[in-house]
Amino acid sequence: MLVLSRRAGESVVLGDDIVVTILEVRGDVVRVGIEAPRSVKVHRAELLAQLEETNRQAASPSEDVVANLARALDHPAQDD
């Protein structure tokens, strides 16, 4: 990991077309501006982690669903 010190108004350039600028520093909060092409996805890390957890929960069936499916497989519906 590259670690840099920057002051408000200073920037870091990533590749040819991404510019990260420190806009403001107030106590322990830093406002950062990011200029990047629309094709570059920029997300906050905590939101990605939350999205991954939500997707994982959605992909895992609840115990009720599994139990109902097991009962249905043990006792298939009778055709008349």
Rank of each mutant, 00 (worst) to 15 (best):
N68I: 05
V20R: 01
L51K: 09
E24R: 15
H43P: 02
A49G: 09
R26A: 15
L69A: 14
R7W: 07
V40E: 05
L4C: 05
P37C: 06
T21I: 03
N55W: 07
I22M: 01
G15H: 02
A58K: 15
S60E: 11
V66H: 05
P37Q: 04
D64N: 10
A36V: 00
G27H: 04
L47C: 05
V12G: 00
V12K: 01
R31H: 10
S11R: 11
R6S: 02
G9K: 08
S39V: 13
P37R: 03
R31F: 08
A45G: 09
G33L: 04
E35T: 08
R56Q: 10
V66E: 13
P61L: 07
V3G: 01
A49S: 12
L47Y: 12
V32Q: 04
V20Y: 01
V30R: 06
R38F: 11
I34E: 01
V12N: 02
E52I: 12
D74Y: 08
R71A: 13
V3C: 01
L4H: 11
A72V: 02
E35S: 15
E53P: 00
S60C: 14
D79G: 07
A8W: 03
V30A: 11
A70T: 13
A72N: 09
L23K: 15
E24W: 01
P37V: 03
E35V: 08
E35N: 11
V65E: 09
L73I: 06
R26D: 13
A67G: 02
S60Y: 03
A72I: 02
A58G: 03
G15N: 03
E46D: 11
V66I: 14
S62Y: 00
N68R: 15
H43Y: 11
R44I: 03
V42I: 13
E35R: 09
S11W: 01
R38N: 11
V65R: 15
E24Y: 04
D16T: 10
A72F: 05
L69N: 15
L23P: 00
D74A: 15
V65P: 00
L2D: 12
S5C: 04
V42E: 07
D16M: 02
V65I: 14
E35M: 06
P61E: 06
L14H: 02
V32K: 03
G33M: 03
V19L: 09
S39C: 05
L48H: 06
A70N: 09
D64E: 14
M1Q: 14
S5H: 15
A77Q: 09
A72R: 10
Q50M: 14
L4A: 09
K41H: 15
R44W: 05
T21G: 01
V66G: 03
E63S: 11
Q57K: 12
G9D: 00
S5F: 10
E52L: 14
L69M: 13
R26M: 07
L2W: 04
E63W: 07
D74M: 11
V66T: 11
